[in-house]
């Protein structure tokens, strides 16, 4: 299993196993995503996109099969190790931005570093860097409510990069943005993929976004098609 940064091996995810409302969201998914690749995941509602993303991000455990991140099988990790892996190897960008409303841009971006235990000096340096990278150097002290949706999502991207992760997972990052702003966010993410060789996985409904990716995973009823 050394060929990919993310390897899914025979993933099955069944909800409510054994009950009347038993539902299998993923049926035998096998995937290999190589380091530095840009991959889109597409599919209608209920096709298993979010479930797949949750499994890759160690938020959920598969019923069968295994996810390997950097050659480590995640089912062998305990909660603490999973938390560490999430904050150090993965960067998350959500559809609804999910910034902490009481915190400024600066505080939101430094949060993963605080969880990691990075010193204040280093945090300040890194946040400054990230803010200029996403073009928000002037908005360091702004709270989410004082910024536009696009700006908020850029703060979220900066937060995802705080601990310099290898992989960026974006769940419909443009879903709450207008087309123009959404395009800019995608450009930003693609730039991170190309220039910094970060593996990028975007879940999207937008075929224009999917077209630009190195390859596209289409899901339907829990299977790759």
């Amino acid at each position: 299993m050394s060929e990919g940064v993310i390897v899914c091996d025979g993933l099955v995810k069944t909800y409510n196993a054994g009950k009347l409302n038993e539902f299998t969201a993923l049926k035998n998914i096998n995937l290999t995503i190589k380091e530095g690749e840009y991959v889109s995941i597409m599919g209608p509602s209920g096709s298993g996109k979010s479930t797949l993303l949750n499994l890759i991000s160690c938020l959920d455990s598969p019923t069968k099969g295994e996810v390997y991140l950097d050659e480590t099988g995640i089912s062998t990790l305990n909660d603490l190790e999973k938390s560490r892996l999430r904050r150090e190897k993965l960067g998350f960008v959500f559809q609804k931005f999910n910034l902490i409303p009481t915190m400024t841009s600066f505080e939101n971006i430094e949060l993963p570093m605080r969880f990691k235990g990075t010193s204040l000096k280093e945090r300040k340096k890194k946040v400054k860097e990230l803010l200029s990278l996403v073009g928000l150097a002037a908005k360091s002290a702004n709270k989410p409510t004082e910024m536009s949706g696009g700006e908020q999502q850029r703060v979220a991207v900066a937060r995802a990069l705080a601990n310099n992760p290898k992989i960026i997972l974006a769940d419909e990052p443009t879903g709450n943005l207008d087309t123009e702003t959404g395009k800019k966010i995608i450009e930003l993410l693609m730039k991170l993929n190309r220039e910094e060789k970060r593996t990028l996985i975007i879940v999207t409904h937008d075929s224009k976004i999917a077209e630009k990716s190195d390859y596209l995973i289409k899901l339907l009823d829990g299977r790759v098609i």
Partner: peptide
Amino acid sequence: RREIGVMKAIGATTTT
């Protein structure tokens, strides 16, 4: 709840 969920998703431990 949502905030706490986000914190956990981006790497906060249960103990944190």
